[in-house]
Each structure stands twice: as structure tokens, then as C-alpha cells.
């Protein structure tokens, strides 16, 4: 069973909050999903480890016109001129 400490650490890595969450039920769900996922450990495969998954069509990295800033900002809840407004890093308040 995944411990509460591990679950907190995991949520922090995933940028999710556990506030208001039924932590016991979530831990039970995650534990059973991990047990299910762990069936991969039983498999014995004899293959080179780093075979490429597939080829990509890479294009030249050429500077080209993009969307106007006004359009990019259309879905922003808070903006200032042509900037997104974010919350303060650390401390309290917006």
C-alpha cells in the first residue's frame, strides 16, 4: 500500500493538491493500479534496451511569423498589455 507520505510526495511532483481528497480511497486506488502496472516486471524480454520507437520528420528550425500577441492572450484570465499576469512566487497574495 502506498503510504500517505509517498502519496503527498507524488501529488507534489504532479502539481496536484490532496486537499479535500479522500486520501485513503485514493491511496487504495493508486496501490491497486500500481500492482496492476507491475505485471510488467514478470515479463522476460531479450531485446536491446534503446531501440528507437520511430522516425520523426524534423523540419528546419526557421524563424517564422507566429500568432499575434493579442490573439494568444484571448483566453487569458488576467493580462497586462501583452503579458500574462501570474501569481507572486512565494509569500502571500496575488
Amino acid at each position: 500500500m502506498i503510504s500517505l507520505d509517498e502519496l503527498k510526495k507524488l501529488a507534489n511532483l504532479a502539481k496536484l493538491s490532496l486537499e479535500g481528497e479522500d486520501v485513503d480511497a485514493l491511496a487504495a486506488d493508486i496501490t491497486s493500479i500500481l500492482e496492476f502496472a507491475n505485471t510488467v516486471s514478470e515479463a522476460v524480454v531479450d531485446l536491446p534496451k534503446d531501440e528507437a520507437a520511430g522516425a520523426y520528420n524534423l523540419r528546419e528550425d526557421v524563424v517564422a511569423p507566429s500568432y499575434p500577441a493579442e490573439e494568444i492572450l484571448l483566453n487569458a484570465a488576467e493580462k497586462l498589455d501583452t503579458y500574462f499576469v501570474a501569481r507572486k512566487i512565494g509569500g502571500t497574495g496575488a
Partner: peptide, 14 residues
Amino acid sequence: SAADLDDFICRTRT
């Protein structure tokens, strides 16, 4: 509502 940027992102996603 959020205390700071990290809290804001976590709350938004949750």
C-alpha cells in the same frame, strides 16, 4: 484563491 504561484497551480489543476 491561492497563497502563491505553486499553490495556485496545484489548486487550478486539482
